[in-house]
Computed example of a mutant assay.
Amino acid sequence: MNPLPHPFGRTLAALGGAVLALGLLAGCGNDDTKTAGAAGTPTGDASTAPTSPAASDGVSAPTGEPSTGTPSAIPAYYVGKTPQGDRLFREFTQVSGVDKLVAAAAAVTSGSTVDPDYRTVWPQGRFASVTQSADAITVTLKDDGWLQAGSLKPAEARLAVQQLVYTLQGTIGKRLPIKVDYAGKPAATLLGVDASAGLKAAPELDVLALVNVTEPAQGTVVSGSFTAEGRASSFEATVPWELRDASGKVVKKGFATAEGWADKLYPWSTKVDVKGLAPGSYTFVARTDDPSDGEGAGPTQDTKVITVT
């Protein structure tokens, strides 16, 4: 398994998902937090740009610290459309006043995303508890409703399980297996997926979108310039990007170079100068390079609507 880099950098995430997580699970555990900003906070050249998770693997947020009551950023994985079909995109969200694993699981199952292009495929409901031991993360089911896939197609059920696995592992920063308990004993399945040996993360290229923007977050306010970053597996590590105005016109474009490609997703980062642009709403677009020149399924892309001041 690949080493797990530290996820904390400059990415922003809104409090909406955190508020919902707290509403679902208030009082279910202690909080292990790191300070992070909220979407809508000015960034770019501003000296007060907040600190939050960077565009790395997203699986090394440290745990075990006492609660401070300050917001903590966690990576949540959601489903979005790509040329390869539905894949997982990562979005950071803030939580406070509740155990991070509990909040992470609630974020996945509630599907309260900041980016409207993302969604969850989980059926309605929530876990009874989510706990961590030295060798596993254990999710406990409230009833037998999630033992089988129900109305989910097999592919949807497998992707839902991977949503949970990637999110919980990312929250603790360890590739621990996910065990499932029901009625005081291990459950053999979760959403119809075999859980008897513990649920593990599938290879990144099988389940993750091939490009993901983690900064700027949806709704970020920028001024002067901003750093865009994320992860990608793109041909020859090239990640083309564009900035479009409200009419869809491309007003800036360029490319970033990721740290690698082909075998997994790698971090990429670029600085975008917005000096001279009229204040207003813009869409930042990052995509994979398309060596087929349109002959294949087309590039994967991720978009974030931001505000330039």
Rank of each mutant, 00 (worst) to 15 (best):
A49G: 14
S269T: 15
T48C: 10
V108F: 04
A256V: 04
S234C: 09
A36K: 06
T270R: 08
A134I: 00
S52R: 10
A201K: 02
S269C: 11
A278M: 06
P203A: 10
G16L: 15
G294C: 09
T303G: 01
A73N: 02
T309W: 06
D117Y: 04
T43A: 15
E229G: 11
T167N: 00
E242N: 01
T41D: 13
S96Y: 03
V95W: 01
S56K: 13
K179R: 15
A256Y: 02
A258W: 01
V102A: 13
P154A: 05
S72K: 08
Y282A: 09
E215F: 08
G298W: 14
P203L: 08
T189L: 04
D45K: 12
L147A: 04
T238H: 09
G150I: 02
G192Y: 05
A278Q: 12
L141R: 05
V308W: 14
V213P: 02
A258D: 06
D99T: 08
P3R: 13
T82C: 07
K271A: 06
I172R: 01
D135W: 03
D293R: 14
I172Q: 00
V59W: 07
A136G: 00
H6C: 02
L277A: 05
G40E: 11
T214L: 06
F92K: 04
A183Q: 15
F8H: 15
P42W: 07
T70S: 14
G85P: 11
A262I: 12
V272P: 01
G254D: 07
H6R: 09
A61R: 13
G254V: 07
A73I: 03
D31P: 02
L22P: 05
T283E: 09
G248I: 07
S52W: 05
T167D: 00
L20P: 03
G298N: 13
T303M: 10
D293F: 14
T11G: 14
L191Y: 04
L152A: 09
A55L: 05
E259C: 00
A105R: 09
T113F: 03
I306R: 11
D144Y: 04
K179A: 13
A38D: 15
T303Q: 13
L22F: 15
P216A: 04
E65C: 12
E236M: 12
L101H: 02
V305F: 05
R175S: 09
Q84K: 15
V102L: 12
S225V: 03
P42T: 15
Q84N: 14
A38P: 13
G58I: 03
I306Y: 13
T238W: 06
L243T: 08
D57W: 11
G192V: 08
T227G: 06
